[in-house]
Design a binder for these strands. Sequence first.
RNA 1: AGGGCAGUAGCUCCAACGGCUAGAGCGGCGGUCUCCAAAACCGCAAGUUGGGGGUUCGAAUCCCUCCUGCCCUG
Length: 305
Amino acid sequence: MSHFLPLICLMGPTGAGKTAASLALAEEFPVTVINADSRQFYRDFPIITAQPTAAERAGCPHRLFGCLETHETLGAGEFARLAGKTAITEHAKGRLPLLVGGTGLYFRALLDGIASIPAVPEEVAAHWRTRCALEGAGALHRILAEVDPASAERLHPNDRQRICRALEVWDATGKTLSWWHDRPQDPSPFRALRLCLELPLIALEPRLDRRIDLMLQAGALDEARAALKRRADSLAPGWSGIGCRELFSHLAGDLTFAECRDLWLRNTRAYAKRQLTWFRAETGLIRLAPDDLGQIRDLVRRHCK
RNA sequence: AGGGCAGUAGCUCCAACGGCUAGAGCGGCGGUCUCCAAAACCGCAAGUUGGGGGUUCGAAUCCCUCCUGCCCUG
């Protein structure tokens, strides 16, 4: 048991107070905060993606924030490798790795493992995406049914994103996606404490509303303007973040400011709901109220023994 | 005050001629998820068609009336 590295995971829907809780933990434990939020990787959007501020980072080391360009993406497998490596490095330095974020799939990939499928060349992925746009998801689903029946059955005929994924993996590796999924996985080197901050949507809503104002006060609009100057491509992955895309539309003249703010809030709320659905189904989580810091400290203390 | 236009799901709107169970997008609610995940996808609920009357076998649709909103004229 002792050769497993202790690791603390702090997850929960957007706006639940994960950052605040992580700072509270930093006061008592030698933690290094490691980002586990797909959006907080983007360098151009520190405010809109609610990355910890310089002042907030002063309390302890922070890793993996703001290290991606707007046109780049970070897949779950890549994240798991990166975050795992970072956690091990930090542990070797005598620090307690604390993963904080709201991307459920990232946590799952790191903690439960993910099939180690080699990276698919962009040309291959683009090829299937193009075919999907031209021929439709249904046609590709039928192709998939031929080459990888197990995956085809698992996937809905409209689920173009995953159908393309299955086809590109087969195309690029010569093995089907289900073949990769069936391979045994390396055991996790971590002994993880999974904490989930949860708040009912009704309680979350006013916080999300207020947070948008805070982001605007902090200069969200200028941030979007600057990012736009650097990369005016609405299809770039970084721009797909909530808040980013609404501000993009506003700056492009497609939305008034009021419409933009309104949509931003609605989309944030819908996202928080999806996260709640994800975490609800996840097993092995310890669910906590965000203000229950005493309880959180207690659990971490016990976990580190 | 007179004339014109409109009123259909929470919102924005579609429904030749009067004719299947009044539809869609968004939102709402529930769910899925092994790598674009703040993504993508699935399911469900929801309407006294502004109110009332009339014509008709049958009205969101035609007629009358009232209510409400917008526009034009004064």
